[in-house]
Simulated assay, not measured.
Amino acid sequence: MTTNGTSTAPQTAANDKAARRKRFEDVFPIIANELLGYIRGEGMPKDAVEWYEKNLYHNTPGGKLNRGMSVVDTVEILKGEALTEDEYLKAAILGWCVELLQAYFLVADDMMDASLTRRGQPCWYKMPNVGNIAINDAFMLEAAIYHLLKKHFRSEKYYVDLLELFLETTFQTELGQLIDLLTAPEDHVDLSRFSLEKHHLIVVYKTAFYSFYLPVALAMRMRGIEDEAAYKLALSILIPLGEYFQVQDDYLDCYGLPEHIGKIGTDILDNKCSWNINTALSHATPDQLSVLESNYGRKDPVAESRVKEVFSQEPIALPRRFETYEAESYTKITELIESVDESGGMKRAVFTSFLNKVYKRSK
C-alpha cells in the first residue's frame, strides 16, 4: 500500500513496535503493585513502601526493554500464533523478571564504575538521599524476581527450571563483571592486562548469557521444551550472537553517531576493555602502541582524539577490521541458524528475529 508514492510499511512496522512495547509496559504497574502490596502486608512503614516504589520505577522501566520483550516474542514464535491473555501475562512477567535482573546489575554496576548518568537521568545512587542505600536497593530488585516467580509459576512443572536459569545466569554475569573489574579498573590503566581472549570472556559472561540466552531459555521452558539438546543448540547460537552484539556496541561507542546511539561514547576515557582497544593492541606498530599506552584511559579529550586517530590508521584500521568481523559473524551465525532442526519444537525464526534486530544496526 502506498500514499502519494510513499510506502507505509515502515510506518506500520513502527506503529506495531510501539503497540507491542506499550502492551509490555502496561504489565509493569501490575507487578509493581504486587510487590508493593507484599511489603505493605508485611507491615513495612509508609516511607519504606514509598522508597521501594521509587526504586522500582526509577531503575526498571525506561530502557530499551529488548531483553524483556524478547521473552514474549520468543514464546509467540514458538507457539506459532497469538498468545492468550493468560499466556501473554505469564510471558510478560518473565520478561519483566529479566528487566529486574538488568536493573539489579545496573544499580550495582553504576556504583562500582562511579557512573553519573543512566538512561538520561542520574544514576540511582546519585539521586538525593540515596547514596549507599542503593546497595540494599539493588538486592531488593533482585529479590523481586524470586517473589514474582513463586507467586506466578510455583504450580508449573518448569518452576525449578526458571529458578535455576535466573540463579545460574546471575552467577555467570557476576563472573564477567569480576573479570572486567580486575582487568580494567577505571583508576589504573595497564594495557598489558588486556587481550582479545579476556574481552571474549567478559562479553560472554557479562552480556551474552543474560541478554540473549536467558530470554530464549525462559520462553522455551514456558512452551514446554524439555530436550536438553535444544538448550545446548540455543546456547551455541545465542552466545556468538551476543558476542557479535557487544563487539558492535564497542565499535559504535567510538564510531557511532551520538544522535543515533543516544549517548556520547566514553569507552576510551573510561579505560574500557573493549574490542576496539584489544584489536588495536594486537595489530599496532611500536609507535602506535606507545601512543595508545600514553593516552588510553585518560580523562582528557585531546588524549581521546589521539587514540581515535591511531584506531583509524593502518595497520590497525578498525573500521575495515570491524567490517570484516561483522561479515564473518553474520555468515557464521546464519549457518548455525540454518542447521536448526525444527522437528523438536525449536524454530529458526527465534534466532533470525534476534539477528535481524542487531545486524548492521547503527544505534
Rank of each mutant, 00 (worst) to 15 (best):
T2F: 14
T2N: 15
T3H: 14
N4G: 09
G5C: 01
S7K: 11
A14L: 14
A14P: 08
D16L: 11
A18L: 09
E25M: 12
L35E: 03
E42M: 10
M44D: 13
M44L: 11
K46G: 04
Y52M: 08
E53Y: 01
H58N: 07
N59C: 03
N59D: 15
T60N: 05
M69D: 06
S70G: 14
S70N: 13
V72F: 12
T84R: 03
E85F: 08
D86T: 11
E87W: 09
L94S: 04
V98L: 10
Q102D: 11
D110K: 05
M111E: 01
M111L: 08
A114L: 15
P122V: 00
K126D: 11
M127S: 00
V130P: 00
Y146P: 14
K150N: 15
H152I: 02
D161V: 03
L163H: 08
T173E: 05
T173M: 12
L175G: 10
G176P: 03
L182T: 04
A184R: 00
E186I: 00
V189W: 00
L191R: 06
S192Y: 14
S195C: 06
S195G: 05
V203L: 10
Y205G: 02
Y205L: 12
K206Y: 02
K206R: 08
Y213T: 12
V216G: 04
A217V: 01
A219W: 03
A219Q: 07
E226T: 12
D227R: 15
E228G: 08
A230V: 11
L235C: 13
I237C: 08
I237E: 06
P240G: 12
Y244E: 06
Q246K: 12
Q248H: 15
L252A: 02
P258I: 10
H260V: 07
N271W: 00
N271C: 01
K272Q: 01
W275F: 07
T279S: 10
H283C: 06
P286I: 03
Q288E: 13
L289I: 09
S290D: 09
V291L: 12
V291A: 06
P301N: 07
V302S: 06
E304K: 10
R306Q: 15
K308N: 04
E309V: 07
P319Q: 03
F322C: 03
T331Y: 11
K332H: 15
K332M: 14
T334W: 09
E335C: 07
I337D: 13
E338F: 04
S339N: 12
G345V: 04
G345N: 05
M346G: 01
K347A: 02
A349P: 05
F354H: 10
K363E: 07
